[in-house]
């Protein structure tokens, strides 16, 4: 797992995906931080954190798209799958590599917090809970993106399918609002990433949501392992 993790981190930087990802992420977040907080004179980072959620939907698939599809295309997965490592080790090595990139990206929030603390009082506990929430959401998103990448050998297809999938987790809210069947509505709201995330940005720390995001990550990583297991056995 360690070897794969280190190789992937290296590959993020040599393939320049890391730079593109971090640049775009920072640019968009900086824009909203400057507009809402600096120009708007607010010490509340909730707006920036909501932006991060939307940005993640579009950027995380770019981070995960090549993790498995590239291996398949270049036939390098044969080297991994015949090495004395478990499938779980392979999947988690890649998962944590992507998660590390994501942590680097969202940690910009602390820089924003520090800048704001020069001008006023920052509610650090809220920032921390928001930070934790965006990490949990990202962790779940990355597992979904990784799973999609394991299904195809085409990076662009993996990215596109990833964005659509993550958008659905977001748009399920809008859909739920229009559904009149009450049990279906409850179920759809239950699946909504944004509703759960929004509670965090308001400063509500809900343990069931924490579990929801973690289980989504575990579930999709498990699916990815199954994809490889199934391929081996078919």
């Amino acid at each position: 797992m360690g070897a794969i993790y280190r190789r992937e981190i290296g590959a993020f930087f040599t393939s320049s995906i890391a730079y593109v990802f971090l640049c775009v992420f920072y640019l968009i977040c900086d824009f909203f931080f400057i507009m809402d907080n600096l120009a708007g004179g607010s010490a509340d980072l909730a707006g920036v954190f909501s932006t991060m959620f939307i940005v993640s939907i579009f950027l995380i698939p770019l981070l995960t798209m090549r993790l498995f599809s590239e291996e398949k295309k270049q036939k390098t997965e044969q080297g991994l799958l015949t090495a004395p490592v478990s499938l779980t080790g392979i999947v988690l090595g890649k998962y944590f590599a992507a998660l590390t990139m994501y942590v680097i990206a969202v940690s910009i929030a602390f820089v924003y917090g520090l800048i704001l603390s020069l001008f006023g009082t920052v509610a650090w506990m809220t920032v921390l809970s928001n930070y934790l929430a965006i990490l949990l959401v990202g962790g779940a998103f990355i597992a979904v993106g990784l799973f999609i990448s394991s299904l195809t050998e085409n990076q662009v297809a993996a990215a596109a399918a990833g964005i659509i999938c993550l958008l659905m987790f977001f748009l399920v809210d809008t859909l739920a609002a229009r559904v009149s069947i009450s049990w279906l509505q409850t179920a759809l709201y239950g699946l909504s990433f944004y509703t759960r995330y929004y509670a965090f940005t308001c400063g509500i720390f809900d343990i069931s949501s924490v579990l929801f995001f973690i289980s989504t990550a575990v579930l999709f990583n498990f699916f990815t392992v199954r994809v490889f297991e199934k391929r081996r056995w078919s």
């Binding site: 190789r7 290296g10 590959a11 040599t14 393939s15 270049q74 036939k75 390098t76 997965e77 044969q78 080297g79 991994l80 015949t82």
Partner: peptide, 11 residues
């Protein structure tokens, strides 16, 4: 050593 060596080209 598989038929196509599993090499990471950008390393």
């Amino acid at each position: 050593l598989p038929e196509i060596p599993p090499l990471y080209l950008d390393m």
